[in-house]
């Protein structure tokens, strides 16, 4: 696809404005900011931000996810998930790291993919070894 230099924006971002509602699936390469309402799944390569006052009934798949609005659905992030003050989240979250701020509401399960620290990993290995003995 030809992109001309006259194109006024090089931004790959999408913004669902405050007075906008999307019913359907949002996907693609860029990042997404939701200020309005989304009913449908979101799967982007970039980051997803739910602004204060936004509402989403979506499963979210993204790089990093920042939540300040209402979300009903599961979150799957390659990077960090931040549930900030004012957010209301119902769903399971699965990411590289998760932070839950004071003032945020969250109902769901947190699943983190991380390696056990060496001493713990060593201890469990040792205990397995002990049991064998």
């Amino acid at each position: 696809m030809m992109i001309r230099p006259s194109d006024r924006s090089e931004s790959r971002d999408a913004i669902i404005g405050r007075a906008t509602r999307v019913r359907g699936r949002i996907s693609g390469e860029g990042s997404l900011v939701v200020e309005g309402v989304v009913e449908g799944d979101i799967a982007v390569r970039g980051d997803v931000t739910l602004a204060p006052g936004s509402r989403a009934a979506s499963n979210v798949e993204a790089s990093e996810v920042t939540l300040r609005g209402d979300l009903e659905g599961d979150v799957h992030a390659a990077g960090a998930i931040r549930i900030e003050s004012g957010a209301r989240v119902r769903g399971n979250i699965n990411g590289d790291s998760v932070s839950l701020e004071d003032g945020a509401e969250f109902v769901g399960r947190v699943e983190l993919a991380f390696d056990l620290p060496a001493e713990l990993a060593g201890a469990s290995a040792a205990s397995t070894a002990n049991r064998r003995r």
């Binding site: 790959r12 971002d13 999408a14 669902i16 404005g17 359907g24 699936r25 693609g28 860029g30 309005g36």
Partner: peptide, 21 residues
């Protein structure tokens, strides 16, 4: 614009807006 569907983003469904798109 208040609602932007950026380069590389695809929406399949219905978009309803009270503002510009």
């Amino acid at each position: 614009a208040s609602t932007v569907i950026g380069v590389g983003i695809t929406i399949e469904g219905e978009v309803t807006s009270e503002e510009d798109v």
